[in-house]
Design a protein around this nucleic acid. Structure first.
Lengths: 109, 109
DNA sequence: ACTATTAATCGTAATATTGCAATATTAATT
DNA sequence: AATTAATATTGCAATATTACGATTAATAGT
């Protein structure tokens, strides 16, 4: 196999998994951090920032974009990437909802 | 390749990626949701809840445990799994920090 | 027009993940 | 001791991910 059985899960579970998966690689965490620090940047900037080759960075950017965590706007020669804060909020809020169920006292088992 | 270059990233980036990756599959999102709903449960409960075979569930539980998102306590014959809310907080807080950089107005590019 | 810059895509190799049947392990129960 | 119940482990097949060199396509600058 190797293929996830997405059919058997809810839309929300699949969406959250997609967002989390996008953050599930240190390079993509680093890209998101950098992107937030500088507000917006182009692929070359990320390549200079990370110890990865250009095609690899491009691939990571694409995965972040496919998950909706970042957006890319064509700007002449280059593409201006930036965070989609609404999507980041979605993941944040989901985890918040989970945490709200924490029982008083903390430990359970 | 196929192996992540963890050496080149910070401990935080690797840790966050690890946590996010654990949530990066709908089955594991479902397991976490279930675990939070019922506070704690055993592997068999999850097997009855999800459309996955027992070894597959066991594997997903292990990945969640390895990432630190859940804990398992041996209780006689079975193992009582529960959420590690501190670890969940870690991921939540990281995303919160990212979001705090959101510029006034919202859009950037 | 020519050249440089930017970034995507293609092709490929190495490794990881997902899923399950079969089996093993461990502890409770009879 | 034999049986049952709960999980983990093993082995394997299918697929996905990670990484990069080489190439391509498109725009910018000269």
């Amino acid at each position: 196999m190797g293929a996830t059985k997405t059919d058997h899960f809810t839309a929300e579970q699949n969406e959250i998994a997609r967002l989390a998966k996008a953050l599930g690689h240190p390079a993509r965490v680093a890209i998101v951090q950098h992107l937030i620090r500088v507000n917006s940047c182009i692929c070359t900037d990320v390549v200079n920032e990370l110890p990865l080759a250009q095609p690899t960075v491009s691939q990571h950017l694409r995965e972040l974009k496919d998950a909706g965590l970042i957006r890319g706007n064509i700007s002449g020669n280059s593409i201006c990437y930036c965070i989609d804060y609404d999507r980041l909020h979605k993941l944040h809020f989901f985890i918040e909802k989970l945490r709200n169920n924490r029982p008083n006292g903390g430990k359970i088992c």
